[in-house]
Amino acid sequence: MADLNRQDIIRGMMAEVDGLSHRMAAASLEAAISCISQALIEHQSVTISDFGKFGVRQRRARQGMHPHTHAPIQIPSVAVPYFSPSPALKQQVKHGSNPDISR
């Protein structure tokens, strides 16, 4: 089974919503991604019920080693995004079910 890409998601949105054009589906996906990205940039979390939570964690500074010279280097602290799936999503993946999300 191939991985989904942006166009696959847009086609899936069009299949789920009658009368949704490709342009509107693409704009909706872009708007959702933009909202989530902006919240993460501002170090806010985003929770989508029955799907999961997007957030930002601070990775601490640490001592590393240069791969070629093996000299010690200081790796700075950095903010990294993460995704934590909801219990409902974990169950769906575990059991391979595909319920109607819109309910």
Rank of each mutant, 00 (worst) to 15 (best):
D3Y: 00
L4P: 02
L4Y: 11
R6K: 09
Q7K: 00
Q7C: 03
I9K: 00
R11Q: 06
R11S: 09
G12M: 06
M13I: 15
M14D: 00
M14E: 04
A15R: 04
V17I: 15
D18E: 07
G19S: 07
L20F: 15
S21I: 10
S21Q: 01
S21Y: 10
H22M: 11
R23Q: 10
M24C: 10
A25G: 13
A27V: 09
S28V: 13
S28H: 05
S28G: 14
S28Y: 07
S28D: 01
L29P: 06
E30V: 11
E30R: 00
A31Q: 07
A32R: 00
A32L: 15
I33C: 10
S34R: 04
C35T: 12
Q38E: 15
A39P: 05
L40E: 00
L40V: 06
I41N: 08
E42N: 09
E42I: 05
H43W: 09
H43N: 11
S45M: 07
T47C: 04
I48F: 15
I48M: 10
I48Q: 01
S49W: 11
D50K: 08
F51S: 03
G52Y: 07
G52Q: 03
F54V: 03
V56S: 03
R57T: 13
R57C: 12
R59L: 10
R60K: 11
R60Y: 07
R62N: 05
R62A: 06
Q63H: 12
Q63C: 06
G64Q: 08
M65V: 12
P67Q: 04
P67L: 07
H68V: 05
T69W: 08
H70R: 14
H70E: 05
P72V: 01
P72S: 03
I73A: 06
I73H: 08
I73T: 06
I73E: 03
I73S: 05
Q74R: 13
I75D: 05
P76S: 06
S77P: 05
V78M: 13
V78D: 04
A79D: 10
P81I: 02
Y82A: 03
Y82I: 02
S84Q: 12
S84K: 11
P85K: 03
P85I: 11
P87F: 04
P87C: 05
A88K: 01
A88Q: 06
A88W: 02
L89E: 02
K90E: 15
K90D: 15
Q91W: 11
Q92K: 08
Q92I: 10
V93H: 10
S97I: 14
N98P: 02
N98F: 14
D100Y: 09
S102N: 04
S102P: 00
S102H: 07
